[in-house]
Structure formats: structure tokens, C-alpha cells
Nucleic acid binder design. Structure first.
Lengths: 187, 187
DNA sequence: GCTCACATGTAATCCGTTACATGATTCT
DNA sequence: AGAATCATGTAACGGATTACATGTGAGC
């Protein structure tokens, strides 16, 4: 059966060099997390499956006496990754945004509550924007060691622009709310 | 136990007037779908649960001899909706975007393939933008009958801006790709 | 001695989609 | 006659999160 996108994240991470499950999670947490989150509950079982399928190879590599398994991608794994990257057909795109959802139904609230909601949403995206901005130097360093792969940087910039859009949209919505409020009066 | 966001979608839809499960789905498909999708597999069981919890009340209302159950929100349901809308704490925000994910790992591709990927992603968002734009007149009509609730319109505009951002980001990324390609040469 | 980071894994559970089953009515 | 729309529901499955369980080593 076909691999999940999460499996491809693991494959993609290992293509940049051998890693333990723990390291995969750590790298994902500062990069892919913002548009494709993964958790330990998926990583370890998936590593097992990928190894059985011959797409990766695990090797025991205890560091400082600590138990540790490091996985490396195989040629078959590289091929599977490439196949996925170039595969035609629909790309899964899913957004679940409780803030926008609440706003959609905010007719049940009064003006003050609506504004408070927008401010909360705005604050969240502002915080995420800062979180991403803080990663930038790390990503810069990672790009160096990855032999000049700048795509991580570009993706990060995309993530920052994404958060900025929501901040701006919240501001815009609040202004629009004030306009109607002042002309017709709110509920 | 607390209600899911999907349950709140149903509650929110019913607050705008009694509806059948089928109608709820139809309304959601042209509004909340883009930031909180729901399916029949959730709607019907959830309607049952909400009724048992006393938050909505179903009434058999066959139209043209067709079997049909219409649900109305109860005062308890309205209260539950309000509680949710004003509840403090983290708002679930989740993005799963296979296009950006692939781009992040596109180091494994050559320049031409990378550009093709961006074009595919761009086309998808372009199509979504048009889909949303086509809904605008419908939403306008819905705002009238909803007694001047303009929030649906504002949310729709937000959705359009969201799609436009991705279209623009794809263009931006393609330009950035061309820059590095022409100066240092690609893989 | 304690806490944090490193490290691996599983089980329960939740949420959601997809596919299926069924049937009436309306439009072409 | 056939397709599309209206209409309700369930079962199987899949993907992911959370919580739990366990243990080492490093730094304070």
C-alpha cells in the first residue's frame, strides 16, 4: 500500500543524513511542523514499517551509553521519495482554523466580544510569527551544513508570510467591524 | 464531555434557523468547509448526540413525501454555542499542506521539476480562489436573509485573501528559484 | 538530589473520511 | 428512461494525538 505523507516526511528527513527517531522529531519540530506536524506515536511505528519495506536501514548507535538507533535512507527509499515528489494528482491541503470558525458564527456575540475574539486570534499568529522568526538563524545554519540547500529557508519565509497574513487579516476584520458598528450600530 | 468543534459547527448552523442534516452539510460546503470541513459521517451521529444532550430538538418534517428531520437549536444549545464562542484558551489551528511539504524536500529534484511543483500548487490555489469568488453572490443573498449578518461575507473575503496569498507565494518562490538558478546553477 | 534533555516505544482513544446501503422526487 | 438532487444513516478504516511506561546522562 502507498506511503503516508508522514512516512515521506521521515524519508525526506533521512535523505538529508542518518538520524534517530528522536532527531527526526526535533528537526521536524523546527521545520515541517508548521505545515505537516508529526508525533512520536507515528514516528517509531513508521520507522519499523519503512525498515521492513527496505526503504530505510536502522543501525544501533548508542551515544554515551544511551540506547539509540540511527536510520539511513536506502536507494529504494530515495527512489520512493523522488516518486512522491514528482507524483501527479491532487495535493492534500487542509486547514482547520477555530479562530476563523468562531468568527463566522460571531453573530451570536456582541461587538466587544467579537473584537476580543479577533485580538486573541491575532495574538496567536503574532506569537507563531515570532516563533518562526526565531528559527531563522537555526535554519540558516542548517542550510550551510546541508550543502547549500536554501529551500528550507524559503519554506520558512513562506511560513512567516503565512502568519503575517493572518495578523493583517485580523486587523482588517477589526477595522471592517468598527465601520459597520459606527454606521448601523451593533447587536 | 465537551463538544467537538464539529458539533459547534452544527450548533452554529442551526442557530441561523432550523435545518435538516442534509441542509447543514449543504450550507457548510459553501462556507465553513474551507477552514473546518465536515462530512455526513459526522453530522448524523452528532445530531443524535446533540439531541440526547438537549442542545437541539428534532422534528419530523417530510417535504414532498420525502423523509426528512429538521432540527432546531434549544436555549441550552444557544448557551453552549455562546460558551464556546467566548471560551478562553487555545484555539485549534492546523495546517496540512502537501505542496509546501514537497517544496521543503524539493532539494531532491532538479530545477525544472521544482518549478513544475510550484505551478501545480499555484494552480490549485488559483482554482480554490475562483471557487470562493463564485460563492460570493450566494453569500450576499444569505446575508440578506440572515437579517444583515455580514460576518459570512467577511469570512469569505478572508478565505479569498488566503488563497491569493498562496498564489502570490508560489510566484515569489518561483522568482527566487530562478534567481539562484541563474547565478549559481542548479543541481 | 533534582531537573532537563536524550531516547524509545505502546495502547487507548479520538476524530474524521470513505464507501456503502437505501429510497423518493424532480428534471431532462 | 435515466440522471441528478434530496435525504438519512452505518460500518470500516485510517491517520494522528495523548498519555503512559521506562531508562540514561548531564548540568545545576
Amino acid at each position: 500500500m502507498p506511503l503516508t505523507n508522514t512516512a515521506h516526511v521521515i524519508l525526506g528527513m533521512l535523505r538529508k543524513g542518518p538520524k534517530s527517531g528522536y532527531e527526526i522529531k526535533a528537526k521536524a519540530d523546527i521545520s515541517t511542523r508548521f505545515f505537516w506536524a508529526i508525533s512520536y506515536g507515528q514516528i517509531y511505528p513508521e520507522l519499523k514499517r519503512l525498515e521492513e519495506a527496505g526503504l530505510i536501514e536502522g543501525e544501533s548507535d548508542p551515544a554515551d551509553g544511551r540506547q539509540r538507533r540511527v536510520f539511513a535512507i536506502t536507494p529504494a527509499g530515495e527512489q520512493a521519495l523522488r516518486d512522491w515528489l514528482t507524483r501527479p494528482g491532487d495535493l492534500h491541503t487542509e486547514l482547520r482554523h477555530e479562530g476563523v470558525l468562531r468568527f463566522f458564527f460571531a453573530d451570536a456575540l456582541d461587538h466587544t466580544e467579537r473584537v476580543a475574539l479577533l485580538r486573541t486570534v491575532r495574538a496567536k499568529h503574532e506569537r507563531l510569527r515570532e516563533e518562526l522568526a526565531a528559527i531563522q538563524p537555526v535554519a540558516e545554519a542548517m542550510a550551510e551544513e546541508a550543502g547549500g540547500d536554501r529551500l528550507g529557508l524559503l519554506t520558512l519565509e513562506t511560513g512567516i508570510a503565512y502568519q503575517e497574513l493572518f495578523v493583517e487579516l485580523c486587523d482588517r476584520l477589526e477595522r471592517r467591524l468598527d465601520e459597520t458598528e459606527s454606521t448601523v450600530g451593533g447587536s
